[in-house]
Simulated assay, not measured.
Amino acid sequence: MKAKILMVCLGNICRSPLAEGILKSKLNPSHYNVASCGTSSYHINSKPDQRSIDIARQHGIDITDQRAAQFKVSDFTTYDHIYTMDSSNYENIIDLASNDHEKNKVKHILNELHPNSNLDVPDPYYGGEQGFEDVFQMLNKACDNIALKLKESD
């Protein structure tokens, strides 16, 4: 059975599409299903932000086929691991959980690099291109650790 991983940010057009694309590039698609969504409904069915598409492409990753979706309670059943990009996303998802099993699936993605620090991946939406590169690098390192842990647990 495929392990299912969900990446979550606010609008699902900047950070979580990058995290989805990066992690997919590190895992065998026949063993893992990686997706992303947002906690808000602002951008449902929209393509990722062009700057996310561009930075991913510069690193050899194509995220143009992704479309924004909103987190739903059924995602707790669908996904084995849920990674949030910041504390606000984390709290929004935890508030929807109905039990400890669901809550235990939700993690701050940067805790993969800095355990128990609950650091936020900065939202690059209002920043320049360097912000998107910085976010890419953070997520790339975190996804290296996630991919390693997933492969070890296979």
Rank of each mutant, 00 (worst) to 15 (best):
V106L: 02
I61T: 10
S41R: 13
F132D: 10
N145Q: 10
L96Y: 04
Q130N: 00
I55E: 01
I13N: 05
S153T: 03
D65Y: 15
P122Q: 07
N140C: 09
Y42L: 04
L6D: 08
K141P: 04
G127C: 04
A147S: 11
D75W: 13
G131R: 02
K107N: 11
H114K: 07
N28Y: 05
L96Q: 14
A142I: 07
N140P: 07
D65E: 12
K24C: 10
S41A: 14
I53D: 00
N116C: 07
I13T: 07
D54G: 00
K149I: 08
R57E: 13
Y42S: 13
C14P: 11
G38Q: 07
I146A: 05
L110I: 08
I5V: 15
I53T: 13
G127I: 08
L18N: 02
D95Y: 14
E133V: 00
K2D: 07
T84P: 03
Y32T: 03
D123G: 06
D65K: 14
F71K: 05
F71L: 04
A68W: 07
H108E: 14
L148P: 00
H31T: 12
N89Y: 01
I146F: 08
V135Y: 03
P29Y: 03
A56P: 02
A3G: 01
H31K: 15
L10G: 13
A19Q: 09
R51P: 07
M85K: 00
D100F: 01
E133W: 01
I5Y: 04
I94W: 11
E102T: 11
N99M: 10
A69D: 15
H43R: 01
N45C: 03
L6C: 06
D62E: 07
P124K: 09
G131A: 14
D95G: 12
K149M: 09
D75F: 12
S30P: 04
D95K: 15
G131D: 12
E129D: 14
K149Y: 07
V121D: 01
H31V: 09
G38C: 02
F76V: 02
T64N: 13
R51L: 03
S16D: 04
I109V: 15
M1H: 14
A19H: 14
S41L: 08
T64L: 01
D123R: 02
I82L: 03
S36Q: 05
V73N: 04
T84Y: 00
P124Q: 09
L10R: 05
G131C: 15
S87G: 15
M1D: 11
K105P: 00
D86Y: 09
A147T: 06
A3S: 14
S40F: 08
G127E: 00
C14N: 05
L148W: 11
I22E: 09
K2T: 11
G11A: 12
H81A: 05
S16P: 05
S41E: 11
D123C: 05
Y90A: 01
G21T: 08
A142W: 07
F132C: 00
S74M: 10
K72N: 09
G131Y: 11
H31M: 06
Y42H: 04
L18E: 10
S52H: 03
E129Q: 09
F71R: 11
N140K: 06
D144T: 08
Q66P: 06
K72T: 08
D134A: 06
V121H: 03
N118A: 13
